[in-house]
Design a protein around this nucleic acid. Sequence first.
DNA 1: CAGCATCCGCTTTGATACTG
DNA 2: CAGTATCAAAGCGGATGCTG
Lengths: 217, 217
Amino acid sequence: MRSYDEYCAIAKSLDVVGDRWTLLIVRELALRGACRYTDVRNGLPGIASNLLAERLRELEHAGVIVREDAPPPIATALFRLTPRGEQLRPVLEDLTRWGIPLMTEQNAGDAVRSHWLASAVELMLTDRQPDASPVTVELQTGDQPIVIETHDGAIRTRLGPAENPDATLAGPPRPILGLMLGLLELAHAEASGVSYQGDPSILDRIGARTVPGAPPS
Amino acid sequence: MRSYDEYCAIAKSLDVVGDRWTLLIVRELALRGACRYTDVRNGLPGIASNLLAERLRELEHAGVIVREDAPPPIATALFRLTPRGEQLRPVLEDLTRWGIPLMTEQNAGDAVRSHWLASAVELMLTDRQPDASPVTVELQTGDQPIVIETHDGAIRTRLGPAENPDATLAGPPRPILGLMLGLLELAHAEASGVSYQGDPSILDRIGARTVPGAPPS
DNA sequence: CAGCATCCGCTTTGATACTG
DNA sequence: CAGTATCAAAGCGGATGCTG
């Protein structure tokens, strides 16, 4: 990207991460940890191969990521955030919070990845009964299951199947998210294709922190 | 901008504010309040006139800004952030913090505006003696003076001349910022063209919160 | 003069094909 | 798997002109 040529911290930041795709590459590495080229590309459906290569070079040159040789068993290089790149997490988190109301609209061709949903859920939910015994909920949506766990009064998510979930939700991502964020009643979610197993009161326990309204558009 | 077509909160946010110039337009309205078209353009040196008009339309359509008729004395329209637009402030603040280390490099053609510097200074400084009597420092750099004031243990900045500043700093923006952020000794700053009037201990009092290192590059 | 719209050359991006 | 190469399409920058 051409520099904005402004002596301003925001403009200088955008000179580095303001290019198209760039912040989404950082997102992939932030959410999934060290990734191979192919893994990054899988998280960016639609990016041109040459653009990904170019962005990775630029990010490396800017000190945001490093390309490192993977440990012996693997024969390929890995990309990883540097400490400087890790410091972009607050930006990603704020953009996630700001974008949550926009998740009420899911376009036909939108790609879905469970790790995107998991990070949004983790930021928005809270354990309303921190002193009760821990609970586990499994979401079956996106490209792999998501486990939601209460953890010392906070909510943690991770990918992969849960062992003995107290509740299980399966269905399309939008009504599941609507349900998790408290924008949708269980009955409405079920009418939209969500199936629920477990004690419904669990949903009240791990309800959304605050429910922002959707924009006009 | 073309949509990323991802069902991800970050990607949805960037669908709205990820275009070139867009977040800088939001910055102008966030830092300066309601602005006329011309004021916005003055804060975005280099933007093509048609692009600014188009971006303003898009932001209005997305519910981030509103175009309102100014009160009677003025015969022109004003642009202002909506509550939804105000919620982008955390993003702007994080980008400011992340960009501060990049301010060590000032390119030849970089435009300078005092309100950009003031917001960065406000975010980075802290009053180390909150119980002492308030102090005021005037910075003479950029396109207008900046006033730094201690305010209930916090640091506030505003634009315009100070009445009776306890200290005054004048000179080029980079060494002044370096001095404020504790990256530069007063002697070095003076060697770079900064002139200082007042009690030097004031600088220690309103020192930087933490001094992040500059990136490699 | 403020607030755009139009035009045009240049740069960036997207889609696909190809290679070690 | 991890890119590079190519080329058409879209986006941007700068100049200019129009309208109240």
